[in-house]
């Protein structure tokens, strides 16, 4: 089954680049990337630029409106994602628990819609 793991966190949470905690934090991500690749589970995984770089577009009655900022103004923002393929939700949960940001943010697991069914 395919799942997307959405990484939400407050932008001021977690170690900042240059701090002593930052190295191990990033290594956690590298380790997980490697594990997902080795398991054949990795489809894609990326980190996103800050929320203030976000742009939101809506089209109503054929009229396009473009505004600055993310869709939802919440403290916790989408900061990155993994797109994975594994056997079941428990495996996805186990991977999600290994995402370093899970220790201060939260990971939302969503199964991908299967249009074949």
């Amino acid at each position: 089954m395919k799942y997307i793991l959405l990484i939400y966190q407050a932008e001021d949470a977690g170690p900042t680049p240059g701090s002593p905690e930052f190295g191990p934090f990033m290594e956690g991500y590298f380790g997980l990337n490697q594990e997902l690749t080795n398991d054949g589970a990795m489809i894609a995984g990326e980190g996103l630029q800050d929320g203030e770089t976000a742009t939101t577009v809506t089209v109503r009655n054929g009229k396009t409106t473009t505004v600055d900022g993310p869709f939802a103004e919440t403290k916790e923002m989408l900061g990155g994602f993994y797109f994975i393929d594994c056997d079941n939700l428990d495996q996805a949960i186990a991977y999600a628990a290994k995402i370093p940001s899970a220790q201060f943010g939260s990971i939302e697991i969503r199964p991908i819609m299967d249009y074949g069914q």
Binding site: D87, N88, D90, A92, A97, P111
Partner: peptide, 14 residues
């Protein structure tokens, strides 16, 4: 069904 909750015993980590 949709979220793929398995019909197995949980992994030791869980």
């Amino acid at each position: 069904k949709k979220a793929g909750i398995p019909f197995t015993l949980p992994d030791p980590s869980l």
